[in-house]
Nucleic acid binder design. Structure first.
Lengths: 188, 188
DNA sequence: TCTTGACTTCCTACTACTAGGTTGGTTACA
DNA sequence: TGTAACCAACCTAGTAGTAGGAAGTCAAGA
C-alpha cells in the first residue's frame, strides 16, 4: 500500500497548490515515478482520485482535531491550534483542499460534492463545540450563537488563506487571525 | 466594440463560475457565436484575456464603490451595500473573479499577478476608509486598526462565498455577514 | 515439492478528444 | 487601399482513459 499513499500525497499537494483542474495524471506520474497508465490501476478515473482525496483529507482533519482536543484543555488554546493548521498551509503555499475544491465545485463530478459538504460540516461542528465550551467558561464573549461564530471563523480562515495567495502577504494573514481572536475574547 | 464586450462578459462569467482553468476558448466561441480562431483576433492569448478580465473587473468595482459612496451617506449603509455585491454574486452562482483567480494563482501567467494584487488592494483601501469614517462617527466600534478590520471583512466575504459554493447554504452566508456587521456595530 | 491459477503491480502502445494557437485567407467598410 | 472582423483548416501538445501483456506474489492442491 506504499504506492497508493505516495500517489495520494502527490495528488493532494497538486490540488492544494494548483487546483483539481490544474494538474494531470502525467504530473503525478512524473512525481512518484510510475507511468500514467499505472495510476489508473489505483484510481480508475480522476473522479475516483478526487473522492479518495477529500475523504482522506477529512480523515486527516479528524485526527488533527482529536489531537488538539486531547492536547489542550482550554478552548482558546484549542482555537489557536486550529488556526495554526491554516497558518501551516499558508507556509507551504497550499490552499485548504476543501476550499480549493469548493472554488471548482461547478466543474467537479457531482459525486464528490457530498464528501465536500461533509468536510465543511466537520469543521463547523467542531468549532461550534469549542466555541460553546469557551463561552460557558467565559473565555469567549460571543454575540451570536456558537454556530454562527463557527461559520464566521471558518470563512475568515478560508478567505484569508485565499487572499494571501494573491497578495503574498503573510503578515496580513496573521493580523487578520489575531484580530479575529481578539474579537472573540473581548468582553461585551 | 460590441463583440469584444460580449467576449469579456462571457469569459468573466465562465471564470467566476468555473475558474480560469475550467473553461476554454471553445466555450466562449459557442456562447458568443463566433469561431475559436476569431477570438484570437481580440485576445491573442488566454493570458491577454485574463489580464483584460481582472483589469475590467477592477474597473467595475471602482464604479460600484463610487456609486455606493455617492448614494449612501452613512458608513454602515455603505458597508451594507458593499456586502450586497457579494450577496449578488452568490445568487448568480459566481465567485468573486479576484477570489477565483487567487485560488488558481500558482497556475496563472505571473504577468496577471500585479493586477490581481491591485484588485485586492482597492477593496482593502476602500473598506479601510469607510471603516475609519464610521469609527470616528461612532457608528462602528473597532478593536483594531481600520485596515485590520478591512482585511478581515474582505476575508470573511471571500471565505463565506467560497464555502457557500460547496454547501449551497445561502442562509449561512447571510448569518455570517450579519454577525460580522453586529460585531462591528457593538459598543465595546 | 512442484505446479497451477488467481491476483497485484506496473508497463508499452494506443485511442479519442481537447487545449491554445497559427496560417492564410475572405468580406465589408472607411 | 488599408484595416478591422471574421473564418476554415490546420498544428502541436496535452488530456483522460483503454487494451493487452510482463513479471512477480501467494496460497491451494496433487
Amino acid at each position: 500500500m506504499e504506492m497508493r499513499e505516495q500517489i495520494l500525497a502527490s495528488a493532494q499537494r497538486l490540488v492544494q497548490q494548483r487546483g483539481f483542474n490544474g494538474f494531470s495524471y502525467a504530473d503525478i506520474a512524473d512525481e512518484v515515478g510510475i507511468r500514467k497508465a499505472s495510476l489508473h490501476h489505483y484510481f480508475p478515473s480522476k473522479t475516483d482520485l478526487g473522492m479518495a482525496l477529500i475523504d482522506g483529507y477529512t480523515k486527516q482533519l479528524d485526527n488533527e482535531l482529536h489531537r488538539i482536543s486531547g492536547t489542550y484543555a482550554r478552548s482558546d488554546a484549542q482555537l489557536a491550534a486550529y488556526i495554526a493548521i491554516y497558518r501551516g498551509s499558508l507556509e507551504a503555499g497550499r490552499m485548504c483542499l476543501g476550499g480549493m475544491l469548493a472554488s471548482e465545485a461547478l466543474t467537479l463530478d457531482p459525486a464528490v460534492l457530498p464528501s465536500l459538504k461533509r468536510f465543511f460540516n466537520r469543521n463547523t461542528e467542531w468549532l461550534t463545540e469549542i466555541l460553546a465550551a469557551g463561552n460557558s467558561q467565559q473565555r469567549f464573549a460571543l454575540i451570536g450563537t456558537a454556530a454562527d461564530h463557527a461559520r464566521m471563523l471558518l470563512s475568515v480562515l478560508q478567505g484569508a488563506l485565499l487572499i494571501a495567495r494573491a497578495t503574498g502577504d503573510r503578515e496580513a494573514f496573521d493580523q487578520t487571525t489575531s484580530l479575529l481572536v481578539s474579537g472573540l475574547s473581548r468582553k461585551g
